[in-house]
Computed example of a mutant assay.
Amino acid sequence: MAGDNRDEQNPVTKHPQPEFEQQDQAHPGWTGPMDPPPDHGEESYQGSGLLEGRKALVTGGDSGIGRAVCLAFAREGADVLFTYLPEESEEAGETSRHIEEAGRTPVAVPCDVREEAQCERLVERAVTEFGRIDILVNNAAYQMSQPDGISAITTEQFDRVVRTNLYSMFWLSKMALPHIPQGGAILNSASVQAYKPSPHLLDYAMTKGAIVTFTQGLAQMLASDGIRVNAVAPGPVWTPLIPATLPDTTTFGKQSPLGRPAQPAEMAPAYVFLASPQASYITGEILNATGGTPLP
Results as ranks from 00 to 15, higher is better:
residue 213 T to F: 10
residue 194 A to Q: 05
residue 230 N to M: 02
residue 287 L to H: 11
residue 76 E to I: 06
residue 176 A to C: 01
residue 95 T to R: 13
residue 289 A to V: 14
residue 158 F to E: 12
residue 103 G to K: 04
residue 223 A to T: 08
residue 34 M to I: 14
residue 64 G to Q: 07
residue 204 Y to Q: 03
residue 89 S to N: 09
residue 61 G to Q: 01
residue 186 I to C: 01
residue 3 G to Y: 05
residue 248 D to W: 04
residue 187 L to P: 00
residue 141 A to S: 12
residue 204 Y to F: 12
residue 203 D to H: 13
residue 173 S to L: 05
residue 182 Q to D: 14
residue 140 A to R: 04
residue 163 R to H: 15
residue 230 N to T: 04
residue 169 M to H: 14
residue 219 A to S: 05
residue 128 T to R: 15
residue 215 T to W: 00
residue 11 P to E: 00
residue 237 V to I: 14
residue 71 L to P: 08
residue 131 G to R: 11
residue 124 E to V: 11
residue 59 T to W: 09
residue 155 T to S: 10
residue 10 N to R: 07
residue 259 G to E: 02
residue 41 G to Q: 05
residue 12 V to D: 06
residue 267 M to H: 01
residue 190 A to P: 06
residue 1 M to V: 08
residue 177 L to S: 04
residue 270 A to D: 01
residue 163 R to T: 15
residue 248 D to Y: 03
residue 281 Y to W: 14
residue 139 N to A: 07
residue 252 F to S: 03
residue 49 G to L: 13
residue 226 G to A: 07
residue 18 P to K: 07
residue 282 I to T: 15
residue 257 P to E: 11
residue 21 E to K: 10
residue 73 F to K: 08
residue 217 G to V: 08
residue 227 I to K: 00
residue 206 M to V: 13
residue 269 P to D: 01
residue 49 G to M: 10
residue 102 A to Y: 01
residue 113 V to F: 06
residue 90 E to W: 05
residue 276 S to E: 07
residue 34 M to W: 13
residue 133 I to F: 07
residue 108 A to H: 12
residue 194 A to W: 06
residue 101 E to H: 13
residue 207 T to Q: 01
residue 207 T to R: 06
residue 280 S to M: 07
residue 195 Y to L: 05
residue 282 I to F: 08
residue 210 A to M: 01
residue 250 T to Q: 08
residue 102 A to W: 02
residue 125 R to A: 15
residue 100 E to G: 06
residue 89 S to L: 12
residue 52 E to A: 13
residue 41 G to T: 03
residue 117 A to V: 06
residue 196 K to M: 11
